[in-house]
Design a protein around this nucleic acid. Sequence first.
DNA 1: TTGAAAAGCGGAGCGACGCTCCGTATCGTG
DNA 2: CACGATACGGAGCGTCGCTCCGCTTTTCAA
Lengths: 205, 205
Amino acid sequence: MSTADTPSASAGRKRADVRRNEQKLLDAAAAVFVRMGIDAPVREIAAESGLGMGTIYRHFPTRADLVVAVFRHQVDALAAAVDAAPTAGTPYEVLRQWVHQFVDFLVTKHGLAEALHSDQAGFESLHNEFVERLMPVLDQLLKASTAAGYTRSDVRAYDFMLAIGNLCIGVENFPDYQARRMIDLLLAGLARTAPASTGEEPEQP
Amino acid sequence: MSTADTPSASAGRKRADVRRNEQKLLDAAAAVFVRMGIDAPVREIAAESGLGMGTIYRHFPTRADLVVAVFRHQVDALAAAVDAAPTAGTPYEVLRQWVHQFVDFLVTKHGLAEALHSDQAGFESLHNEFVERLMPVLDQLLKASTAAGYTRSDVRAYDFMLAIGNLCIGVENFPDYQARRMIDLLLAGLARTAPASTGEEPEQP
DNA sequence: TTGAAAAGCGGAGCGACGCTCCGTATCGTG
DNA sequence: CACGATACGGAGCGTCGCTCCGCTTTTCAA
């Protein structure tokens, strides 16, 4: 259940209408997600697509699977962005830029950050998808920056990734909340700093 | 609608059963919240209290109001903890300790951090309660630490408080996530540091 | 071309949720 | 005690995610 069981994609040849409907569903879902956010009712997507709810659930066993499918391309792009590395500076700078790309992605999908860490049943697949695809990338960036001496070595990519996602929660519900500043604060904390005055490295459980 | 419209508390003299039932509801809600988390169905609380749902909603117009009422004492304690200041060290250390107390509170109430930033209708009151009671405290701690030269001055208490709450989201759903470490990372980013190598103070919008 | 089996589709329906509404029970005062 | 004011209870409403099965469409051998 980890490598290849994607219900979408062009697997073995299927009936023509099946492929057509799957595309219809993805398009409709994308449109509805933009209009109403990730939490839009499934019925709404059914209406938008002109198909029935049974069809949705046959293609995507749960709402989360539909969300995953809709954003898969963009997640892939994010994972690939690390290789492109257009404006490479220090490894820390590269890391920082990737993080901000990640944030850009999260905050433009209404409710995605919230859903990523939801305890709603079925949404673990969303969480898993993101972790599996993006954590290796972040881990690589982190290790590179640490190896070059720019960042501390005691931060796990997993924690850091969830933290970034978490900090994006609420951007639209609380317009006064400046998530980006807090992301920068976290990044500043990550930077290796000449530990000056007070207690650092608090290792007590 | 900001100062004194608390539906609970012992306002004007009411019928005896009303006061009795309000206490029953608070007790039942507290028990159910511990057992099933903040998101427990209202019906469950009604069952636990032995009262009807109508009674709940007459006392607390929305679920969020009930949550607020249940935790009001602990929020007050948290707000007061800053004056006690038992193990005072540097202002930064005091700030850090208070933050960790706040985190202790959040992570022991299953689902509270999530609810705090939920877009669910009616939950703004929960958010507001926390902001109104605790942000002044945090602001004071922050200003003190900054004035003493321990922390940067460009971080707003509001952002910082939401960030802390956000970082606590998912602790129980994702046991591998070490929220505390990320809180410490944020605190490290807050500390005034001899800015060494790479780009800091990113002020681009 | 045809016709029946295989495959897919649609939407009524289920259980759970937050919250409302109003007939009924309880309180407390004259 | 009696009666008006007050509060209670829980059936019921609208909405949600998701399921189930009778019906339609596609496919392909004859």
